[in-house]
Design a protein around this nucleic acid. Structure first.
Lengths: 302, 302
DNA sequence: CGATTTCTCTGACTAGAGTCAGAGAATGGA
DNA sequence: TCCATTCTCTGACTCTAGTCAGAGAAATCG
């Protein structure tokens, strides 16, 4: 990370917080305190439990309660106990609340527009695409990779989504029963690893690694949720699993895949995998890949 | 401005304010209130007059005074009357203040680093260059173009800088006396226009337009300060002057330039100017350009 | 010289954004 | 059934980040 990069990031931070900050106050802090506005926004069209609101915004329960009283007094929301659990209370927008929220929405659009407004068409296009890139990469930086048990709810959620996607994308469909699926123990230490990627706490991807004694390590069940694609997550999974395999003493990493998964095949190639003859009889596989693991060169002193 | 662009800008705003906002509080709001920290930062190494500080940060005089008392009590700054005008007071950092400021600086670097830290090298490079683009274009959007009298201090500042630059860049040097310079009246309405570009109130560029009766309009003295280049300002000057010329009823816009000014020459070409034979005997010119002004097609209804 | 203006400071306020310590109702488990 | 836990609410605070109205000293203008 060189200092020219750091300087550029600092310049960016300064410019953006100044410019967007000023506009933010101008457009959004106009008639309602921003605490209330944020809450109003987070309640959403369908309403929310107070509990979830608090979690989402990371606020003190007393504070949220007070904000809700204030919104209630202005006739923007109604708060009622949930029928199933009467300790929990559900907040819903009234029509006036919906109108207020729509106004906030419009203001936020105006804010965005005012950033583009002074630019010509070519500049606008460049700004928007640069913003998309910044957005994508900053988001990528907040994705966490955690080792979990394949039975964990987040892991199960990913696997379910993964199978659903395979069923849709394979021309033959996909039936887990016919496939060579590792049993849970094979993806649990010490015989393997299962990783889940999370974005803002939500699971958005998974990848498993089998570490059989005296045999090549094998990557299984790598999946990235549609909303988390283009964040370099696939590559990150591969790098992480490669590192785990190496720590484990493996010298060869391999995997099989279906011809429908073209993006994945491209990734394997670009990550240094070589296509090899079939090393198993997975019925859904068309391509088999392997990569020799070499110890990375020692890092130069920091 | 289409709605996909607006949406992307809004997504960008949300991601950036969340991510940078959280880190900002974490790193910079640690031991000193951000009001004080901002002030400490703005005082700078050489010190500042209280008056300028207030202007720069846009704060109430009472508030600044109170903040200064607090910094003084902590031994971070000294405040003394200015010798020339004892109403004005000058703030200077003490050694402790300098140390505190250095710490803030380091924190800001850490913040920047923490944005890059989770990314790999390729992603970092992409993020930094996208940030540079956003930075540049957002900055470009805050540059204002104002019509001023060529005798205005900001105009004079630009012209002085312009002449200095010509002197350095022309292989023959540059002596204003030998050049065909318009007299001030020629760049003042109704006989002409003089524009100054300002960024955060500082003049960062100028351009003049002669509007002689019954003759082609002529662009003179177009200059952009080094720190404001790559913001599309040259193009913006040309567009603005072209519009003025057209309003005035001109149908031809022309200008001359020196071969050393390659970037400008490129701009003229790309903006639709054609090189033509010399139309004057400006001793410092090597190229003469003109552009036919056509009324723009009527705008489709808004 | 006196009047006016400029600059900084002090005192008195306000609003926003929280924090903290319980109280009271509803629920779940032993 | 009772006890612990969960969830929301209230009351009493705190800290920032200001704003506003003058007061007093210094400089400037006529």
């Amino acid at each position: 990370m060189d200092s020219a990069q750091i300087d550029q990031v600092r310049r960016f931070n300064r410019t953006v917080t100044e410019r967007v900050g000023v506009l933010h106050d101008h457009y959004l802090g106009r008639d309602r305190a921003i605490g209330e506005a944020r809450l109003l926004w987070e309640i959403g069209e369908q309403g929310q439990d107070v509990r979830r609101l608090r979690e989402r915004l990371g606020l003190d329960s007393g504070y949220v309660s007070r904000l809700l009283r204030s919104l209630e007094a202005d006739g923007l929301v109604t708060v009622e106990p949930q029928p199933r659990d009467r300790r929990v209370r559900t907040v819903r927008l009234t029509d006036a609340g919906r109108a207020e929220r729509a106004m906030l929405d419009a203001r936020s659009e105006e804010l965005a527009g005012s950033l583009l407004e002074p630019l010509n068409d070519a500049q606008r296009a460049r700004l928007v695409s640069a913003m998309a890139e910044v957005d994508r990469l900053l988001t990528a930086g907040t994705v966490t990779l955690d080792t979990v048990d394949p039975g964990h709810p987040d892991a199960r959620h990913c696997l379910r989504s993964y199978f659903t996607e395979l069923r849709e994308r394979f021309e033959t469909g996909f039936d887990p029963v016919r496939s060579l699926l590792p049993d849970a123990g094979e993806l649990t230490p010490p015989r393997g690893v299962f990783l889940v990627a999370r974005l803002h706490g939500e699971p958005v991807g998974c990848a498993g690694l089998k570490l059989p004694a005296g045999a090549p390590a094998e990557i299984k069940r790598m999946w990235v949720a549609p909303q988390a694609r283009r964040l370099g997550l696939g590559r990150r999974f591969l790098a992480e699993l490669e590192a785990r395999a190496e720590q484990h003493g493996c010298t060869l990493l391999r995997l099989d895949t279906n011809k429908a998964l073209t993006a994945a095949i491209g990734l394997y190639h670009s990550y240094g995998f070589q296509e090899v003859p079939a090393f198993n009889d997975e019925p859904y596989a068309h391509h088999w890949f392997e990569k020799r693991i070499t110890a990375p060169p020692p890092r130069s002193a920091p």
